[in-house]
Simulated scan of single mutants.
Amino acid sequence: MTDNFASVLAETRLLPVLSVPSAATAGPLAEALAAGGARCAEVTLRTPDAEEVLRTMAAHGGLTVGAGTVLTPEQAERAVAAGARFVVSPGFDPDVVEKCRELRVPVVPGVATATELMRALRAGLDTVKLFPAETLGGPAALRALAAPFPGMRFVPTGGITADRVPAYLGVPAVLAVGGSWMATADHLERGDYAEIQRLTALAVARSVT
């Protein structure tokens, strides 16, 4: 984890998580997020156009854009070639972590157990994604899991809605909260970029108070 990426996350303490079905929406989406005050975004590799979306959003310049749902070293390599400045995985895979080290990009692997946290520590990581956060028990579970690992920082993601963000941010170990409520598939289908900007601005305002 580079200091620069950590500082970008710490600015707004929010990580919009995006599953974008069409590359045509990537430019307006990046503009709406940036106008709403977002400073970074995760483009999940769950759609056919994901790499092109990543390339377009990375070229916007107003956001630090990374790739999510990265499952293999090959995906990590393609994502970085498309402009990803960081990599997020749903679980801990040592080969993905090693590939990101080779590529010199920050990697945030997902964890759900103390065992996975210990593996992340052994790999030299200090930031992980708690996933799926709400299903695992929310902020209470996060506090309990973080307690034996005082140096670890968390980016909880998975099922988190706007009204749950303050509870997560109230946990000292949380660096930022990830979620898709700011730009849902429905917003993108309707082309409702004004609403994306509004929801992003509201989330940013709540996260920095």
Rank of each mutant, 00 (worst) to 15 (best):
residue 4 N to G: 06
residue 4 N to P: 02
residue 6 A to P: 03
residue 7 S to A: 15
residue 8 V to A: 04
residue 16 P to K: 08
residue 19 S to G: 07
residue 22 S to R: 15
residue 22 S to N: 07
residue 24 A to K: 11
residue 25 T to E: 03
residue 26 A to C: 02
residue 29 L to N: 03
residue 32 A to M: 05
residue 32 A to R: 03
residue 34 A to N: 05
residue 39 R to G: 05
residue 39 R to C: 05
residue 40 C to K: 00
residue 40 C to T: 10
residue 41 A to P: 13
residue 45 L to D: 04
residue 45 L to R: 03
residue 47 T to A: 08
residue 52 E to V: 07
residue 52 E to M: 03
residue 52 E to G: 03
residue 53 V to I: 14
residue 56 T to H: 07
residue 59 A to W: 03
residue 64 T to Y: 01
residue 67 A to V: 11
residue 72 T to H: 11
residue 72 T to C: 07
residue 72 T to L: 08
residue 73 P to H: 05
residue 74 E to H: 12
residue 76 A to N: 09
residue 79 A to Q: 06
residue 79 A to E: 08
residue 82 A to E: 02
residue 83 G to V: 08
residue 84 A to T: 05
residue 89 S to G: 10
residue 89 S to I: 08
residue 90 P to T: 09
residue 90 P to D: 08
residue 91 G to H: 13
residue 92 F to W: 00
residue 94 P to Y: 13
residue 94 P to Q: 12
residue 97 V to E: 13
residue 104 R to K: 06
residue 108 V to Q: 02
residue 116 E to Q: 13
residue 117 L to P: 00
residue 118 M to S: 09
residue 120 A to R: 01
residue 122 R to Q: 13
residue 123 A to Y: 10
residue 123 A to F: 08
residue 124 G to T: 08
residue 124 G to D: 09
residue 126 D to S: 14
residue 127 T to M: 09
residue 127 T to W: 07
residue 133 A to G: 05
residue 134 E to Q: 14
residue 135 T to I: 12
residue 135 T to K: 09
residue 139 P to A: 14
residue 139 P to E: 13
residue 140 A to C: 03
residue 141 A to G: 04
residue 144 A to R: 14
residue 147 A to K: 08
residue 149 F to W: 04
residue 149 F to D: 02
residue 150 P to E: 12
residue 153 R to C: 04
residue 153 R to M: 10
residue 157 T to K: 01
residue 158 G to Y: 11
residue 162 A to S: 08
residue 163 D to N: 06
residue 167 A to R: 11
residue 167 A to L: 07
residue 167 A to G: 02
residue 168 Y to N: 00
residue 174 V to M: 13
residue 178 G to S: 09
residue 179 G to F: 10
residue 181 W to A: 02
residue 181 W to E: 01
residue 184 T to R: 06
residue 194 A to N: 03
residue 196 I to K: 00
residue 196 I to H: 00
residue 198 R to A: 15
residue 200 T to G: 02
residue 200 T to V: 07
residue 201 A to G: 11
residue 201 A to I: 13
residue 204 V to N: 01
residue 208 V to E: 07
